[in-house]
Lab assay of single mutants.
Amino acid sequence: IINNLKLIREKKKISQSELAALLEVSRQTINGIEKNKYNPSLQLALKIAYYLNTPLEDIFQW
């Protein structure tokens, strides 16, 4: 999986903590996703895309 979450999140000036709060997950979860240590569920990936107002395929590429 190619993961552009960190790049997109930083472009939008959103911290890991802010995104985690919006998604109701821990900051460690966001960190793990960004470091490719954790693959989000489809539901979480869709929520990330929604809150970042970015197409899912721009954030994650399988």
Results as ranks from 00 to 15, higher is better:
residue 1 I to S: 12
residue 1 I to E: 07
residue 1 I to R: 12
residue 1 I to V: 11
residue 1 I to Y: 15
residue 2 I to E: 09
residue 2 I to A: 10
residue 3 N to P: 03
residue 3 N to F: 03
residue 3 N to R: 03
residue 3 N to E: 02
residue 4 N to G: 04
residue 4 N to P: 02
residue 4 N to D: 04
residue 4 N to Y: 08
residue 4 N to A: 05
residue 5 L to C: 04
residue 5 L to R: 01
residue 5 L to T: 02
residue 5 L to F: 02
residue 5 L to K: 00
residue 6 K to C: 06
residue 6 K to E: 08
residue 6 K to S: 08
residue 6 K to T: 07
residue 6 K to M: 08
residue 7 L to G: 12
residue 7 L to I: 14
residue 7 L to Q: 13
residue 7 L to M: 13
residue 8 I to H: 07
residue 8 I to V: 12
residue 8 I to G: 02
residue 8 I to N: 04
residue 8 I to E: 05
residue 8 I to Q: 05
residue 8 I to L: 07
residue 9 R to C: 05
residue 9 R to Q: 03
residue 9 R to P: 01
residue 9 R to M: 06
residue 10 E to R: 10
residue 10 E to S: 08
residue 10 E to D: 09
residue 10 E to K: 11
residue 10 E to N: 09
residue 11 K to G: 13
residue 11 K to M: 12
residue 11 K to C: 09
residue 11 K to L: 12
residue 11 K to Y: 10
residue 11 K to F: 09
residue 12 K to R: 09
residue 12 K to L: 08
residue 12 K to I: 08
residue 12 K to D: 03
residue 12 K to Y: 05
residue 12 K to T: 07
residue 12 K to E: 07
residue 13 K to Y: 09
residue 14 I to H: 03
residue 14 I to G: 01
residue 15 S to M: 05
residue 15 S to N: 06
residue 15 S to E: 05
residue 15 S to G: 07
residue 15 S to K: 09
residue 16 Q to I: 13
residue 17 S to W: 12
residue 17 S to M: 12
residue 17 S to H: 12
residue 17 S to C: 11
residue 18 E to P: 04
residue 18 E to G: 09
residue 18 E to H: 12
residue 18 E to M: 09
residue 19 L to G: 00
residue 20 A to F: 01
residue 21 A to W: 07
residue 21 A to H: 11
residue 21 A to I: 11
residue 21 A to M: 14
residue 21 A to K: 14
residue 22 L to M: 14
residue 22 L to E: 07
residue 22 L to Q: 12
residue 22 L to V: 12
residue 23 L to T: 12
residue 23 L to V: 15
residue 24 E to N: 15
residue 24 E to K: 15
residue 24 E to Q: 14
residue 25 V to G: 01
residue 25 V to H: 02
residue 25 V to C: 07
residue 25 V to D: 01
residue 26 S to T: 10
residue 26 S to L: 03
residue 26 S to N: 11
residue 26 S to I: 03
residue 27 R to E: 15
residue 27 R to Q: 15
residue 27 R to D: 10
residue 27 R to Y: 10
residue 27 R to V: 15
residue 27 R to C: 10
residue 27 R to K: 13
residue 28 Q to R: 14
residue 28 Q to K: 14
residue 28 Q to E: 15
residue 29 T to D: 07
residue 29 T to Q: 09
residue 29 T to M: 14
residue 29 T to V: 15
residue 29 T to L: 15
residue 30 I to T: 01
residue 31 N to C: 09
residue 31 N to Q: 13
residue 31 N to F: 07
residue 31 N to L: 11
residue 31 N to K: 14
residue 31 N to G: 09
residue 31 N to S: 13
residue 31 N to Y: 10
residue 32 G to H: 14
residue 32 G to S: 14
residue 32 G to K: 14
residue 33 I to R: 01
residue 33 I to G: 01
residue 33 I to A: 02
residue 33 I to H: 01
residue 34 E to I: 03
residue 34 E to K: 02
residue 34 E to H: 01
residue 34 E to A: 04
residue 35 K to L: 14
residue 35 K to Y: 08
residue 35 K to T: 15
residue 35 K to G: 11
residue 35 K to H: 14
residue 35 K to W: 07
residue 36 N to G: 15
residue 36 N to S: 10
residue 36 N to A: 09
residue 36 N to T: 06
residue 36 N to Q: 13
residue 37 K to A: 10
residue 37 K to W: 15
residue 37 K to G: 07
residue 38 Y to E: 09
residue 38 Y to F: 14
residue 38 Y to G: 06
residue 38 Y to C: 13
residue 38 Y to Q: 09
residue 38 Y to M: 12
residue 39 N to F: 15
residue 39 N to P: 14
residue 39 N to G: 11
residue 41 S to M: 04
residue 41 S to N: 09
residue 41 S to A: 05
residue 41 S to L: 03
residue 41 S to P: 12
residue 41 S to V: 04
residue 41 S to I: 05
residue 42 L to Y: 14
residue 42 L to F: 13
residue 42 L to D: 05
residue 42 L to C: 14
residue 42 L to P: 07
residue 42 L to S: 05
residue 43 Q to R: 13
residue 44 L to M: 09
residue 44 L to C: 05
residue 44 L to V: 06
residue 45 A to L: 06
residue 45 A to W: 10
residue 46 L to K: 11
residue 46 L to P: 00
residue 46 L to H: 08
residue 47 K to L: 08
residue 47 K to N: 06
residue 48 I to Y: 01
residue 48 I to E: 00
residue 48 I to F: 04
residue 48 I to P: 00
residue 48 I to Q: 00
residue 49 A to C: 06
residue 49 A to L: 02
residue 49 A to E: 02
residue 49 A to W: 02
residue 50 Y to T: 07
residue 50 Y to G: 06
residue 50 Y to R: 08
residue 50 Y to F: 14
residue 51 Y to H: 11
residue 51 Y to D: 00
residue 52 L to H: 00
residue 52 L to Q: 00
residue 52 L to W: 01
residue 52 L to T: 04
residue 52 L to D: 00
residue 53 N to K: 10
residue 53 N to D: 14
residue 53 N to H: 09
residue 54 T to D: 02
residue 54 T to A: 08
residue 54 T to G: 01
residue 54 T to K: 04
residue 54 T to Q: 05
residue 54 T to W: 05
residue 55 P to Q: 06
residue 55 P to L: 05
residue 55 P to W: 05
residue 55 P to V: 05
residue 55 P to G: 06
residue 56 L to M: 11
residue 57 E to C: 11
residue 57 E to Q: 11
residue 58 D to A: 09
residue 58 D to V: 12
residue 58 D to H: 10
residue 59 I to M: 05
residue 60 F to D: 00
residue 60 F to Q: 01
residue 60 F to R: 00
residue 61 Q to A: 10
residue 61 Q to M: 09
residue 61 Q to I: 12
residue 61 Q to G: 14
residue 62 W to C: 13
residue 62 W to E: 07
residue 62 W to G: 09
residue 62 W to Y: 09
residue 62 W to L: 13
